[in-house]
Amino acid sequence: MARRDYLIGKMGISLLTLLFVLLLDFLLFRVLPGDPVRAVIGRNIRISADVQSSLRAQFGLDKPIFLDQFVDTLGQWARGNLGVSWSQRRPVSEILISKLWNTLLLIGLGQLFSIIFGVMLGLLAGWKRKTPFDIGALTFSLIAWATPTFWLGIILLVSGSAWFGLPTGGIVSPANIGKPLHTVLPDLIRHLILPTLTFTILYLGEYMLIMRSSILETLSEDYILTARAKGMSNFQVLMRHGLRNAMLPMVTIIALNLGFTVSGAIYIETVFSYDGLGNLVQTALVKQDYPLLQGAFLLLAVSVIAANMLADFLYTYLDPRVKAN
């Protein structure tokens, strides 16, 4: 019962947040300079004022921004209609979805590896505190965390292609473009190695540092002493009593990162010419493609909110005290 109430409360807050974000996303592109109708007709000044105003009426732009236009827009968004890209002349939702899978593949793999290795490294470093292993892992993580994304990407790109002959960009080789991805799996994997490695190294540092400090704090707790007094080996104590408690702060960080990286892999996708959302946002920005940007922002906001809800949900399983509050 308590868990359900807690989750319902969290969902309510998420909905409010979503509404606020939608409002911002709507307003942001209304206050930017430029008139959609003018953008559509371009430099064709021969179109008369009458036609222009009928066009405006057709798009609903003659109505007041509040509440009519806002409600119209929400209705369109709810039906999955995010408008038409000015630069590509295709529905925004269609473009976003086609890129989303590519990005999810890259982020999913990158996050998976950085979480697994970051948690393991942090756990071992905290456990073997002040040993050469700890100092080495700490140094590596600090450097990895501080390294600029694009720089690491370029270095890996140059060395990976020069020494191991890995492809320098794209998702598949030019010959395979257009084929279903599962039919060209080896080629796909070869293309994924470098961007995934870049992504993994970048996030691994952050996860390792947080996991290390978290496990150090946990290991100083009284129940750890109880566990040792029961006759457990240090490793048993670490895995049975340390890990789960130390994972609590990690869940928050991971969820936040997941949300932001959906569109946040801009640098990596640009460096590796990876055909994903980040690359798309960058292109849309350069071309001032407002509907496309608006759609991308919407997707980002929704994924951040969804990731946060996921974290809240996981918390109720990891920490029974959450339900009580």
Partner: peptide, 13 residues
């Protein structure tokens, strides 16, 4: 051993 009652001697999760 039984620890102090004030201590967080039981694992909260």
């Amino acid at each position: 051993i039984v620890f102090q009652g004030a201590m967080n001697a039981l694992n909260p999760v």
